[in-house]
Design a protein around this nucleic acid. Sequence first.
RNA 1: UGCCCGAUAGUAUAAAGGUAGUACAACUGGUUUUGGUCCAGUUAGUCUAGGUUCGAAUCCUGGUCGGGCAACCA
Length: 556
Amino acid sequence: MSEEKSLNFLEEIVEKDIETGKHGGRVLTRFPPEPNGYLHIGHAKSICLNFGLAQKYGGKTNLRFDDTNPSTEETEYVDSIKADVNWLGFQWDQELYSSDYFEQLYSFAVALIKKDLAYVDDSTAEEIATAKGTPTEPGDPTPNRSRSIEENLKLFEEMRAGKYPDGAKVLRAKIDLASPNMHLRDPLLYRIKHIDHHRTGSNWCIYPMYDFAHGQSDAIEEITHSICTLEFIPHRPLYDWFINQLELFPSHQFEFARLNITYTIMSKRKLLQLVNEKHVTSWDDPRMPTISGLRRRGYTPQSIRHFCEHIGVAKRENNIEMSLLEFCIREDLNKSAWRRMAVLDPIKLIITNYPEGQEEFLHSENNPEVEGGEGSRDIPFSRELWIERDDFMENPPKKFFRLGVGLMARLKSAYIVKCEDVVKDEHGHVCEIHCSYIPESKSGNDTSGIHVKGTMHWVSVRHALTAEIRLYDRLFQVEDPSSEEGDFKEYINPNSLQVLENAYIEPDLANAKMGENYQFMRKGYFVLDKESTPKHLIFNRTVTLKDAWVKLKTTL
RNA sequence: UGCCCGAUAGUAUAAAGGUAGUACAACUGGUUUUGGUCCAGUUAGUCUAGGUUCGAAUCCUGGUCGGGCAACCA
């Protein structure tokens, strides 16, 4: 008997609505991005919520681009958004655009004017702002508030016809200039923008504001549950007001707390700034919290979906620890990624009693997490190997289970070796490690009777491939960059990217394919970068493995 | 100092008046040819003051703290 999983507050609402037969028990949600940037993991939360709710309750989800501001919106963003939603594993019912409704929205505005609930205002932006008052003081009407319906109708038509320049006039709702809710103090409905729109071209020179487009779009599509983030709570009375005054389908808005993650930012505006000012290379830079960045970094759709389930949904502000995201990708990749060996910071190890020129192939399973190991590959072994520099210490502490003069350790899938001696360069740095190997300790049929605590990865010098490896770390040095004083960019981590030009990787990795995740044993999960070529292999580190030694080391 | 939203371990999230639970993180120990995984365990929480009640994280009142609200952005 498994315990029933508890519902989040939105699931509770939907279940209640189905129970009471609201909208005939129908569930239709929508994901409404503005095509002015790339999707990030905060959007993933919203996507999982909207599509997940519909999936769970037998409904559907529309993808609707909220494209009412042509000065920031582009087709490039539309394409990336569609690709990202699909990649995350979701299929929308209809692909729609707020701009599809421009004609209808225009007639809604006319209807409002005819009810004397909207007027054309010639005031400047500043005049309107000051006349709105402050949260503690009511606003004052501007001179145009009392225009006749006929004059408003004529002026609005002329606005549409292009008779006035940008900013000369706006259409405002006539609601309540004294409302304690600032959004009800005669909000703007339409503004003039002589700019081509990515879909409607030059058909329009007036464009509706968010508040006059979003709710009505929901109503037109008969969205049953319109889910958005907390900052839209004060807009809800306005959302309802338009629907009531225009007598439209009663869509309802529900709000949840947006996702924040430590050591990164989630604002599209700020992310765009990082791109434009070259703090990162692009929207899909693997350090970015964008879907495309995470994808390039090696995150899987499943791990992101799982993350979104883990974090839950509520109305309280939150700042999720990055370690939870990392847990989710490790959990996924541990079960699925094939193991390979790669030496990131190499030092040469010579097996003095292994015949020169000899080589053999050793078997190593692809995935120890799965019964049968998902097969194995043969790894070439020879007298000279690369091992990790920090797998050797000149003065090893007691709990160091790797190499130091006199110490023994196992080479993964190969033999136990004993460190006999080291060679130093002119600066006194160790540049070669000399070992003897124990022939009877061969992996798979070890008759040596020797037990060692440490196992190390390695690559045969003669057979190794060279690769560039990019190590990523958190983008910011502080938990919450946007709450710190000053510009958020002051808190960028200068070491968020470390490039290793000369790593050595096992030959089988020549077969690595884009989108295939590997575990480089003892080092982390890695994936081929899109800039990689057969002649110049490039791997991105998705995430490190958990490492008990780094912690132990610091306490010694 | 107007209106709105919120407050449960370090971080999130449950408990719909009846044993404060789960995950991540942290810490112990065990297993291990990855110092990974896995397994077992430990630490740690109801913002505050009153009230209602046999019984309050939950209901009521006051306070405190955090966030939001005035863009021709969404």
